[in-house]
Amino acid sequence: MTAAAAMRTGGFADPAAESQAAFRTLLDVLARPGRIAELKSAAVAGLSPAASSVALTLCDFETPVWLGGACAAAADWLRFHCGAPLAVDCGTARFAFAPGIADLPDLDLFDLGSDEFPDRSTTLVLEVASLGRGAALTLSGPGIAGTASLAVAGPSAAFWQARAALGALFPRGLDLFLTSGTQIAALPRATRVEVSPCTSR
């Protein structure tokens, strides 16, 4: 398959139905932080199946997209399937995709919105080594009855500290989708995360 042909694959075959189903998954995990769900679209160069599903579902000509590190390989695919403009500066992106924390700038360089318009902020889609294994996170906040737990492998303690530091800026903030292959979970800005010293498997 040529590169051009490869670029054309990995879209939704039935956009109305597939984007609706994917959106409901995104809404479900965002409304219930800690929940892990499956998003099974084709992997494309630079993006896992779950991450490419997010792009196909939410990105278009109205949403500048920032691609960190190896995600940059998805630039042509993203333009072809979503028509999304690429943001060079991550501070102007509505959506940002990163293959891991090594490729992330400081989190407060993303657009965190303003106190008046906190919705005008970046949604970060971060690929992690694993969901379900790794550092045990204890989550609390909206969408959670009491507490929830989520194990994430990949992000460092420093990453979680940096994310926690943004909490003081609420309602400004960064909404996070964590993807790992076909799996996805979400940590919206209002979710408090405590990292337990022990890891689960």
């Binding site: 984007s19 609706q20 959106f23 995104l26 809404l27 965002l30 409304a31 579902t57 939410l58 990105c59 278009d60 109205e62 949403t63 509505r94 906190p118 919705d119 902020s121 949604t123 909206p142 969408g143 309602p171 903030g173 909404d175 919206p188 800005r189 209002a190």
Partner: peptide
Amino acid sequence: TKRMIRRAILKATAIP
């Protein structure tokens, strides 16, 4: 239009 509204719904859910 649905994408635009879906983005709004997600932000609304993130900022209760």
